[in-house]
Amino acid sequence: MRELFTFLNRRNDGEKLREAVRNDISFSQMDRETAELMSEFASLELPKKNKEGEYDMCKAVEELKEEGREEGRVEMLVSLVKDGLLNIEEAAKRAHMTVTDFEKLVNTSESN
């Protein structure tokens, strides 16, 4: 349970969270209950159990960070298109999306 509070206290500081996950072996050997709570609070996808029936939440945290980075990249591309600095075809290509899907994203963000 300590890991859950460590995670929640550091979730907004990527460097401190990364350091905690890297340096605390309990994140790589987490019991089911704590892993499920962490998954629920942070919208993490539970990784597969290891041989001992424990969860390695280090990988789940890394995947969550990568998702955040990808969202940030796409948001930046949308912003560049809106500002007229990048054409929509190039932005869609860089986002690994179809032009149609990227246009929908641009239009959705305009209404927000």
Score class of each variant (00 low, 15 high):
E3W: 03
E3Y: 07
L4M: 08
F5I: 13
F5H: 09
T6N: 02
T6S: 04
F7P: 00
F7T: 14
N9A: 15
N9T: 08
R10D: 02
R10Y: 11
R11Q: 02
R11E: 01
R11K: 14
N12D: 10
D13C: 10
E15C: 02
E15L: 14
K16D: 11
L17P: 00
L17A: 03
R18S: 11
E19F: 12
E19C: 07
A20T: 14
V21A: 06
N23H: 07
D24G: 00
D24H: 09
I25L: 08
I25E: 09
S26G: 00
F27K: 03
F27Q: 06
F27Y: 15
S28L: 06
M30V: 06
M30L: 14
M30Y: 05
D31S: 10
D31P: 04
R32L: 01
R32H: 03
E33L: 11
E33I: 13
A35L: 03
A35Q: 04
A35W: 03
L37V: 03
L37M: 11
L37A: 04
L37F: 09
M38L: 14
M38N: 06
S39F: 02
E40T: 11
E40M: 12
F41S: 10
A42G: 06
L44R: 04
L44I: 13
E45I: 13
E45H: 10
L46P: 12
L46M: 05
K48N: 09
K49Y: 01
K49V: 14
N50S: 14
N50M: 05
E52T: 14
E52M: 08
G53S: 12
E54D: 10
E54P: 00
Y55G: 07
D56S: 08
M57Q: 06
C58E: 13
C58T: 15
K59G: 05
K59M: 12
A60M: 07
A60P: 09
A60R: 01
A60G: 08
V61K: 04
E62W: 05
E63H: 10
G68V: 04
G68N: 10
G68C: 02
R69I: 15
E70S: 05
E70C: 01
E71D: 02
E71P: 00
V74A: 01
V74T: 13
E75T: 08
L77A: 06
D83G: 06
D83L: 12
G84M: 02
L85A: 11
N87W: 01
I88C: 03
E90R: 09
E90W: 01
A91E: 02
A91W: 00
K93M: 05
K93V: 00
R94M: 13
A95S: 05
H96D: 14
H96T: 09
M97C: 08
T98H: 01
T98C: 06
T100M: 04
T100F: 08
F102K: 02
F102P: 00
E103Y: 04
K104Y: 12
L105I: 15
V106L: 09
V106G: 11
V106Q: 07
N107Y: 10
N107K: 14
T108W: 06
T108G: 01
S109E: 15
S109L: 11
S111Q: 15
N112M: 10
